[in-house]
Amino acid sequence: MRFLRYLFLFLAAFVAALFTYGNWTRVGINLWSGLVADVNLPFLLLVTFLAGFMPMWIYHLTARWRLRQRLQTTERTVEALRVSLPASEPVVVPAAADVAALP
């Protein structure tokens, strides 16, 4: 399975390299006060991808952290309840043969 992951990553990097090679052109971006920034197209696409990806990734990390904290709190509560409950005697259920022998 790890081989397939590395194969996919290699193919994605290869496609990205081909895209970068084929689209290495300058793009003018109009900024404030009449400033124009000339940026390579692959760099511009990378920046816009990261601008959209990073907020969702940060949200995902915080949600995972919050759920992990809730799970740890729940596990501590369950462990505390296990320790505080007195040990009860095991319940013995009669077997089917014993039930048939009862009057």
Rank of each mutant, 00 (worst) to 15 (best):
A12I: 07
T73S: 12
L35Y: 13
Y21W: 02
A95L: 00
L85E: 09
T77K: 06
V15R: 15
S84M: 13
M54E: 12
L81R: 09
V39Y: 03
F43A: 12
L61E: 11
P94I: 08
P86E: 10
L67G: 07
P86C: 00
L46Y: 15
G28D: 13
P55C: 01
G28S: 14
Q72T: 13
L35M: 13
M1Q: 12
R82F: 00
E89P: 01
V91E: 03
V99H: 05
I29P: 04
V15M: 15
Y59L: 12
G34W: 00
L7D: 07
L4C: 09
P42Y: 11
N30E: 10
S33V: 11
Y59Q: 10
L71M: 05
A51N: 01
P90V: 09
P103R: 11
D98A: 13
R70K: 02
A12D: 12
T77G: 02
A80C: 00
Q72M: 15
P94H: 09
D98L: 03
F3E: 11
F19I: 06
A80M: 01
R5A: 11
A51K: 04
N30H: 13
P94G: 02
P90D: 10
E89H: 05
V83T: 06
T25G: 02
A37D: 12
A96V: 08
T20E: 04
A100E: 11
V92T: 14
P90M: 10
T20Q: 05
Q72A: 15
E89Y: 04
L41W: 06
A87Q: 11
V99P: 04
L81D: 08
L18N: 10
V92M: 13
P94A: 10
L46R: 15
R5F: 14
F49Q: 11
S33E: 15
T25S: 02
V91I: 12
D38W: 03
Y59I: 09
A101L: 15
G22M: 05
L50N: 08
F43C: 06
A16W: 13
M54N: 11
Q69V: 08
G52P: 03
A95N: 05
L102V: 12
L50W: 12
V39C: 00
F53C: 07
G28V: 07
Q69E: 11
